[in-house]
Design a protein around this nucleic acid. Structure first.
Lengths: 144, 144
DNA sequence: CATTATTCCTACTGTATTGGTGGTATATTA
DNA sequence: TAATATACCACCAATACAGTAGGAATAATG
């Protein structure tokens, strides 16, 4: 059940970008420094966020990354989706055709319920919510 | 986010044992055959269920495995716990001391909520519920 | 135009996990 | 004691993960 490190890092990076929203691009170097994450590794992780349509990049000097949309329009489910590839406990939940008995498999029903519960929680939160929460502690408090 | 195969297999094996509850021990060989799972692999998986106090073993001829308690007293959370080691998305959720900022980390709050949602769902179901559901389809319908 | 800052791309590496196999020891029963 | 079945232990191949490395492409700046 453990999340990949890249998912944890990726969320933290996204929150940094959300905090910086409206103030121009933020460089990976800075995010990595603030968060204590290998800059080279973060590079790959943010590329996933880019592919997922969460962030946009600005190349060249003074470039960096910005959120692709307003923080209140980015659900955490989108972020996890971009980083994990899918928010899914078991393949057959998404793809019935993987198993002949999928349609009335009780184990599958369990994993579907678990998965739906996770997705609901993630969908209920946006990057804006994260920034607001962090603001209350008025520091970079989202470090894992 | 994907579950390990052993967790899926383990749940299915536990459901088989629940279905057989009251009819004496069930052999791994049989479960593996019914479920299309490598008997040798299943051996290891059921050993985890045993360590977790979910099943008891009976050695020797006519031996096999039985549930350690009535199916209605075994929550699915216990089964996942036995197989995954912990029902946890991130280490720091369980163990605050892993990160100095854990106490007011917003990312950690996210993963805590996700994890709690999963645990709630699993806790809400017992092996008995699984047997009852499967009965409605009156076959081995829990195959993944 | 040269320099600098930054993203982008691709490949490599060590480690751990996963999924699975094989063999032997041990206990129980008939 | 022979047959059955679990228990235990060691091994193996494939994959994923986390991180490193080097350089190419691109944009801004002086």
């Amino acid at each position: 059940m453990k999340l990949a490190t890249r998912t944890r890092y990726g969320l933290r990076a996204a929150i940094e970008l959300a905090k910086n929203y409206g103030n121009g691009p933020l460089q990976i170097k800075l995010i990595g420094k603030n968060q204590g994450i290998s800059v080279k590794y973060l590079e790959q992780i943010i590329a996933m966020l880019k592919n997922g349509g969460i962030v946009r990049s600005l190349r060249g000097a003074r470039g960096g990354y910005v959120l692709a949309r307003e923080p209140e329009k980015i659900g955490l489910d989108e972020i996890v989706l971009a980083l994990e590839g899918s928010i899914s406990t078991v393949e057959c939940v998404e793809n019935e055709s993987l198993c002949a008995r999928a349609a009335d498999c009780v184990a599958r029903q369990v994993w579907t319920k678990v998965q739906d519960a996770m997705i609901d929680v993630l969908k209920s939160m946006t990057l804006k919510d994260m920034v607001d929460k962090a603001q209350n502690h008025n520091k970079l408090t989202y470090q894992i």
